[in-house]
């Protein structure tokens, strides 16, 4: 049945409105990052301005952003790898042995407000003089990524037929061997999904780094605040800084869209 033409028109218009509302703010942010502060304050130059990379120079050279980019990359990467190493086998066991209660404990980490963990952590780690180090930061970010990995991988293992492993057992492999040589290679799409999502969420995390990092280890979301003073805001620098944080992650998401979507919607349709 063909849709009525009136609906087609309505649909095109509605989708256009949706697209503009979602993308225009982001375009505006990038545009402002290419303006001088004088142009940002001159509302008549909203769109007609001569672009400059001055703000990016400020962000990358004066403000140590290269170091903060490195910090963010390292923390997100390490937290993701560690979460995969801990989370993938755990999810496998939880899926194959139907360990619902254990899974619930891990998923609790997703429900608990971060602050309620930060207070005791801060107590312990500042007594151990570890606050400000990368170790604590990575461990804290694993609280974002580990539940994600377990949740996504449990769903993935549930969907892998057990018969494949049974066939490997008949061929003389141990259970662990079957997991390593059969299940893991087949799970690569799931692992990629879990890894990408865990990286994105760790990269975007703000609260843990706000408390647990110091001037040398702070990540990009915290470093953004360097451009917000008590009296005034350096809008150009701030928008360049926000673009530096968000643009890479949006470009990555563009290329691995399929994985991001399947990770975000994992388990949602099982009911």
């Amino acid at each position: 049945m063909k849709p009525r033409p009136a609906y087609t028109v309505f649909r095109v218009v509605a989708l256009a409105i949706v697209l503009v509302s979602l993308l225009a703010p982001l375009v505006w942010m990038v545009a402002a990052s290419l303006k001088t502060n004088v142009d940002i304050y001159d509302t008549s130059k909203a769109l007609a301005f001569s672009p400059t990379l001055e703000n990016y120079g400020k962000v990358l050279q004066q403000a140590d952003y290269v170091q903060f980019i490195g910090n963010s990359l390292w923390v997100a990467f390490a937290a993701t790898v560690a979460s995969l190493i801990l989370g993938v086998p755990a999810a496998y066991s939880m899926s194959r042995f139907n360990m619902k209660k254990s899974a619930l404990v891990v998923l609790m980490a997703r429900v608990i407000p971060g602050v309620s963990l930060l207070v005791p952590w801060y107590y312990v780690f500042s007594n151990l003089k570890m606050v400000g180090g990368f170790g604590v930061l990575i461990v804290s970010h694993m609280f974002v990524s580990l539940p994600l990995v377990v949740y996504i991988m449990m769903g993935y293992f549930d969907s892998l037929p057990e018969e494949l492993e049974e066939a490997a057992l008949v061929d003389g492999l141990t259970h662990v061997g079957a997991f390593r040589r059969i299940t893991l290679p087949l799970s690569m799409p799931g692992i990629a999904t879990a890894g990408i999502l865990s990286f994105i969420f760790s990269w975007n995390n703000f609260m843990f780094a706000l408390v647990l990092s110091d001037a040398d280890t702070k990540t990009l979301p915290v470093a953004i605040f360097d451009f917000v003073g008590y009296a005034s805001i350096d809008w150009g620098g701030l928008m360049a800084a926000t673009t530096v944080v968000t643009l890479p992650i949006m470009v990555i998401a563009l290329f691995v869209q399929k994985y991001v979507v399947s990770g975000l919607t994992a388990g949602a349709t099982k009911g």
Binding site: L15, V18, L19, L22, L23, P25, L26, W28, M29, A32, I40, Y41, T43, I200, W203, N204, F206, L220, P221, I224, F225, V228, I233, W235, L238, M239, A241, T242, T243, V245, T246, I249, M250, I252, A253, L254, Q257, V260, V261, L264
Partner: peptide, 28 residues
């Protein structure tokens, strides 16, 4: 369209806050 829908979702929340702070600035 689906890719576009994904963009706000993956953007860093504090950066999103700052972005809207500029857009909602009463003067500029």
């Amino acid at each position: 369209v689906r890719v576009a829908i994904l963009m706000p979702l993956v953007a860093t929340p504090v950066a999103v806050g700052m972005m809207w702070r500029l857009i909602f600035d009463p003067n500029i």
